[in-house]
């Protein structure tokens, strides 16, 4: 029993578990909008873009969080602007803008090899080395994002579901994009140290997609995704203590395992319902129709 509580004895583990839980909630809640906007690739691209921004901030002597936030939000706005042009698709815009921004960082690092190690942490995450001030930054970011999502909830949902009608109904599309860009950039930046550039995309996408398998209601999807994100963040770090695997990778692998489990369970449930519907179809036709409807729509 005492072995199970061992991770809690160390301050760095307690900080890591708290930070990963907050980051799990943060990425999953923002990820709901990312996934439903069919921008799953944006998290991956944006993390790379922000890495470039972080290097530029370092070289220019600007505070990392300020510089990277501006760089990241600007990248999202550029992606949105470019993909509105008929000739450029969304994925192409993400590919061009984020890799170019990443390349700026790589180019600067290749000239200034002295800070290579710091940026390895940004690339692969270093949650165990997280400080109290980092936890405060993550907590503050979560409060900011929660506040923005709370106030802009209806507009974000409306634009995500039906952009044209939202605009026609008076929703300011420009402001929604600005808020979304800011929220996404802040989320990625706050998550960098916990998950690293390479794993953030998974944390943004996997919990909402897992929740999507379980519900057809948007509010329920949001709650399920954030709970999944928070739990997997906490458990991932906790388990990494025992399995001696990179903490960020453990979080993402745990999320992937839960996704696979839910996918399997929902597939079996659908098969059983179809079989039940077919069995009933041999009896009363009206009951058969009702059964088919149940199997399709729950």
């Amino acid at each position: 029993m005492s072995e199970l509580l061992e991770p809690f004895e160390f301050a760095f583990m307690r900080r890591a578990m708290l930070a990963a839980t907050l980051v799990g909630v943060l990425t999953a809640s923002v990820g709901v909008f990312v996934v439903l906007r069919r921008l799953s690739y944006i998290g991956h691209g944006l993390a790379h873009s922000i890495f470039g921004g972080a290097v530029v901030s370092f070289v220019a002597g600007i505070n990392f969080y300020v510089g990277a936030t501006i760089w990241g939000a600007f990248s999202v706005l550029l992606i949105n602007g470019a993909s509105r042009r008929r000739q450029i698709s969304g994925d192409a815009a993400i590919g061009i803008i984020t890799t170019a921004a990443f390349a700026v960082g790589v180019a600067l690092i290749s000239r200034e090899r002295t800070f290579t190690r710091d940026f390895e942490a940004a690339l692969f995450g270093e949650v165990l080395g997280i400080s109290n001030s980092d936890v405060w930054v993550i907590g503050g970011t979560m409060l900011l994002v929660a506040g923005l999502l709370f106030v802009w909830w209806k507009q974000l949902l409306f634009v995500t579901f039906d952009r044209d009608v939202a605009g026609a109904s008076g929703v300011s599309l420009v402001w929604v994009e600005v808020v979304f860009s800011l929220v996404l950039a802040a989320t990625v930046i706050a998550s960098l140290q916990v998950l690293g550039v390479t794993l953030i995309a998974a944390a943004l996408v996997i919990p909402p997609v897992t929740a999507r398998l379980l519900t057809d209601s948007f509010p329920r999807l949001f709650v399920l995704a954030t709970v999944t994100g928070g739990l997997t963040g906490f458990l991932g770090i906790y388990l990494s203590w025992f399995v001696d695997v990179s903490s960020g990778a453990t979080v993402v692998l745990l999320q992937a395992a839960i996704f696979a489990l839910v996918l399997g369970a929902t597939s079996v449930r659908s098969r059983l319902r179809e079989r039940e519907a077919r069995r009933r179809a041999q009896g009363d036709p009206a009951e058969a129709l009702a059964g088919i409807e149940r199997s399709l729509f729950g």
């Binding site: 579901f161 039906d162 929703v171």
Partner: peptide, 21 residues
């Protein structure tokens, strides 16, 4: 066909969007 009809939202929630303001 202008929207994704697999979007996770109920009829009531869609109609409520019309009163967002």
């Amino acid at each position: 066909e202008s929207v994704d009809w697999n979007f996770p939202i109920t009829v009531e929630q869609v109609v409520l969007l019309g009163r967002w303001r």
